[in-house]
Amino acid sequence: MNLPRSAGAVLAKELRIELRTRDLTHTVLFFVLMVAGLFSFAFSPTADESRRILPGLIWMAFFFAGTLMLQLCFVREQANDTLAALRLAPIDPFAILLGKLLANFLFLAAAEIVFVPVFSVFYNVSVLPVLGRLILVLFLGTFGLAVVGTVFSAMTAQARMRELLLPMLLLPVLAPVLIAGVEATGELLVPHPSLAREWVSMLAGFDVIFLTATWLLSGFLVEE
């Protein structure tokens, strides 16, 4: 099987599992609402302040939601040792990772579709005029989170205390995404918004570098 077809099969499998169990959908939806509410208690911002802190809040909330979601991606396979079956399939190991990371990307994107309007309403910041550019920034940042998160989820699936370990590995590596994402989002929420080219290219660079590294190292990540 060629790469797109086999990755597509893994992706379809992930989506089917999620549609049947709805584990992620329910927890993440609740998490989103809870975070949006708790942040406003913690900061009780005025309109000006919220415009300033909103990019940071959005990205921090995504990162924490991401570490919750990504945890499950390889742990799910352990109950019935289904990763062994995936490994036996005559496909490129990268296809397994690619399928899973696309699935994670879609889950995160779905969470963001709920997240951004909720934050925009709660904090009284209008995102409609910059929606296209905001989607670009969110797309690139979320893709980076999905790539590194999927890889680290594969790495930590068999470790002790993996629930603690994954965020500790993931968050420092994602620091450039956080900085670039927050800065780029911030530029879009000011009175005269503009797309910050250097931050967008930083996000794109991060995605390309780590996707390439994942492709090169995929053989090691999926093996026993």
């Binding site: 590194v148 590294a213 190292l217 990540l221």
Partner: peptide, 8 residues
Amino acid sequence: VFGIFAFL
């Protein structure tokens, strides 16, 4: 693998 990711 993590060492390579960290260094990159």
